[in-house]
Amino acid sequence: MADISPVTRGRVKPQGSGRETTIWYLVRISGVALFVLALSHYIIQHFIFDPSQQTSEWIATHRWNQLIWRASDWALLMVVLLHSALGVRTVVRDYVHGPRARIITLSALYLLTALLFVLGTIVVATLQPRGGI
């Protein structure tokens, strides 16, 4: 972990224009997007609404009653999966050193991320009120 600033403990930008530099930028850009998307999602779910009212029927008829809400939650899904996959990748690379173990761990991470993307996309695209609209 020599590539961490000794003072502030942020990751130092890698040299050159390779994959690690691209990832360094992607983590920061997606982080700014999540500052807006994730915090506003938390405010909506916990402060504006309350978990006691959030049944599956309520999501279908109220929370996701317009395309903009489905689109913004789908955007949050994609950005959070990108940011968390890259973040956990960094953690794995810090602690898992064997080449074989690293390939297995990272493959599991990417597989889980892809699966979560599919599950989230299915529900945001298909959830309908049980009575139909």
Partner: peptide, 22 residues
């Protein structure tokens, strides 16, 4: 970061259930 990631994994599975098993 790890804690929020763990919740995100749980949360995507639970929101999938809103359609799959209400």
């Amino acid at each position: 970061g790890i804690a929020v990631w763990a919740f995100v994994v749980l949360h995507i599975i639970d929101i999938y259930l809103a359609g799959g098993d209400p």
